[in-house]
Design a protein around this nucleic acid. Sequence first.
DNA 1: CTTACTGTACCGTCTGGACGGTCTTGTCAA
DNA 2: TTGACAAGACCGTCCAGACGGTACAGTAAG
Lengths: 178, 178
Amino acid sequence: MKTRRANSRDKILAAAADVAREAGPGSLSLDAVASRAGVSKGGLLYNFPTKAKLMQGLVENYLRAFELALESGRVAGASGESLLATYIRLSADDCEEPKPTASWMFSAIAEDPDFLTPIKAFKSQLLQRLKSETPDLKALLVCFLAIEGLRSMNLFDSDVLSADERRLLVSALLEIAG
Amino acid sequence: MKTRRANSRDKILAAAADVAREAGPGSLSLDAVASRAGVSKGGLLYNFPTKAKLMQGLVENYLRAFELALESGRVAGASGESLLATYIRLSADDCEEPKPTASWMFSAIAEDPDFLTPIKAFKSQLLQRLKSETPDLKALLVCFLAIEGLRSMNLFDSDVLSADERRLLVSALLEIAG
DNA sequence: CTTACTGTACCGTCTGGACGGTCTTGTCAA
DNA sequence: TTGACAAGACCGTCCAGACGGTACAGTAAG
């Protein structure tokens, strides 16, 4: 890409996610991120000229990672597996971890709700793709929304479901998805 | 309750929700809420001594309203309707409105993620109740999570689903719920 | 006299961001 | 090979503004 030395950008992005998760989304200040990343505030501002740019970087990073995971999940999955099934599997794995990985999203929303726009667009596009590949729209909607629910629970750190229940749900969804 | 004059408390709560929705969850300051509620800052601090108390009030208000709606929904619904079906209907109605009514939740999370605890507890309890009344656990989980997904979409102001699709989803869920 | 405020002035803290300086690395002419 | 210099990457400090919260004097209703 661009950076020649150690990649500060990624360190900063990771640090921001850590801070949001551990200190709470309201405590995601530039100072906190900089010190967590082992970088001075000046250095942080060099990589991300404004806080908004930092948030944007977080969002883009997130979307890119998800896209990549979806692609490589398609390859790794059983051949003939539908995209919907891959998506279900992948999301279930994501939600396996007890701690939410995307608390920073709340910080972004607080900063400016428009940061959600790319995420909405991504989801919209994904649903579109799924629709074109899935014959049963009803089943698709149910699965898609249920996964959305699972993701939101993970995001909110809601341990309402037990691990067993989560597994049961996923198997039920895969069954519905066909 | 306690208040004798015009109920400032409710006005303030409503104003806080409005500010969060219109100006963004990050702009929920005491000053903004006070001026929106047509109340002086002193008056606001009289009703809610700290910002945290305000958030708590918002959460409690929300939960109380939901509980009430669920109860009156049980009465209003077709006799013999299961609790799960009532919950689905109710949530679908909630999500009919295009604009999210609970943006303040993001402010609360930013303030302190622990404000979610009562909400988590409420949901946990609701699921427990549903489990004891629903024979098919699989179906219950699918429906519960799908509704959760629908709610989260509404919260995030995600118009990924069209109105038709939403209706189709709800009818599918009611079918699954039996 | 108490309750339920209003209105204003004020304080300490925190935060985003601007700014100027510094160290390192790559380039290129002599 | 070397020395000059430009650009890139980062440091550390400072500041204006916003925010939560306090204090207090006043007042209208019951």
